[in-house]
Amino acid sequence: MALCLLSPGQGSQSPDMLARLAADPATAGTLATLAPLAGDEALRVAADPARCFANRHAQPLLCLYALAVGAALSAEGVEAALVAGYSVGELAAYGLAGALPAAAVLRAAAARAQAMDDCAPADSGMLAVRGVAIGEIEALAAAHGVDVAICNGDEHAVLAGPQCALDALATTLAAQRGAHVVSLPIGVPAHSRWLQPAVAPFAATLAALPWQRGALPVLAGVSAEPVRAPERAVETLSRQLAATIDWARVLDVAVEMGTTVFFEVGPGNALARMARERHPGLPARALADFASVAGAAAWLRRQLA
């Protein structure tokens, strides 16, 4: 049996997310050690509904959460064979895989957010769409001047672009196609053409990090290829800022590589739900489904036995 850890991106955070880790003996120590590396006020910012969704705070906080949970699972004897991350979660995935130390991941997360904020146009955002064939979503997105940022499945995508264009498209999709649309609490058009100026600065940041070879493979969001080499990690991590992520393909490749269990290490369970939808025959859970890390680890050990 083989475990694939899933590290989420923005939208999964909540003001109580780090309080939960601080109250769990399995994660409290690691959280206390790592939190200062995510910013002097990381714990207070995470608990503030007005700030925890801001791009510059959200990205380091989500990486902090994933790294603390990953360390706790490892201490409980749970070891993964593969790691995948959704958007900024892919950066955290390299920490979970052992390719980057936690401090480097958190520094890079802050730099990633800054690079995106520096070039993101005002009044832009992201929109989740369900219930319409992906080909039709792509065509309507192009007609409205927005990009498909993430492909989550055959009828599920996330779009990015100017907020006015997203609002107009949301009305069309809901009224004329019966789609379920949700405006995401993300103020930058991630994984779209508008962030192309952020790619080179972030690549330079990544290239300067203390990469370690011989780690677990990480599935690149832009290509679903398993990545181990630092040079390839730098290229795919930076390119994804302005390119579509094919998350559906990432899940498929994980299964092709032998994954039999998915586990999400973030504060929500959206990735676990998507894994179950895509591969209903495989167990897929999230820490959010359990009362404690110890409970989650016990479940994982049973699945992997």
Score class of each variant (00 low, 15 high):
residue 4 C to W: 10
residue 9 G to F: 13
residue 18 L to P: 12
residue 19 A to F: 01
residue 20 R to P: 11
residue 23 A to T: 03
residue 26 A to D: 04
residue 30 T to G: 14
residue 31 L to S: 04
residue 39 G to K: 02
residue 40 D to K: 14
residue 46 A to W: 03
residue 50 A to P: 04
residue 51 R to E: 08
residue 53 F to I: 00
residue 59 Q to Y: 04
residue 62 L to C: 00
residue 63 C to M: 01
residue 67 L to H: 14
residue 72 A to P: 10
residue 77 G to P: 06
residue 77 G to F: 11
residue 80 A to P: 05
residue 82 L to R: 00
residue 82 L to P: 12
residue 83 V to K: 01
residue 87 S to P: 00
residue 88 V to W: 01
residue 89 G to H: 02
residue 91 L to A: 07
residue 92 A to G: 13
residue 95 G to F: 02
residue 97 A to N: 01
residue 100 L to V: 15
residue 100 L to F: 07
residue 101 P to C: 15
residue 102 A to K: 03
residue 103 A to T: 10
residue 108 A to L: 14
residue 110 A to I: 08
residue 121 P to L: 06
residue 126 M to W: 09
residue 130 R to L: 01
residue 134 I to V: 15
residue 142 A to I: 12
residue 147 D to F: 02
residue 158 V to M: 07
residue 178 G to M: 14
residue 180 H to Q: 04
residue 187 G to K: 02
residue 189 P to Q: 13
residue 193 R to N: 00
residue 195 L to K: 13
residue 197 P to K: 15
residue 204 A to H: 06
residue 209 L to A: 06
residue 219 L to N: 12
residue 222 V to W: 03
residue 230 P to I: 11
residue 234 V to N: 07
residue 238 S to H: 04
residue 239 R to A: 15
residue 239 R to S: 14
residue 240 Q to V: 03
residue 242 A to M: 08
residue 248 A to F: 03
residue 252 D to C: 10
residue 259 T to F: 09
residue 260 T to N: 10
residue 262 F to R: 04
residue 265 V to R: 08
residue 270 A to E: 05
residue 274 M to P: 03
residue 279 H to V: 15
residue 286 A to R: 05
residue 287 L to N: 00
residue 287 L to F: 09
residue 293 V to Y: 09
residue 298 A to M: 02
residue 300 L to E: 03
residue 300 L to H: 04
residue 301 R to P: 01
residue 301 R to Q: 10
residue 302 R to V: 07
residue 305 A to S: 13
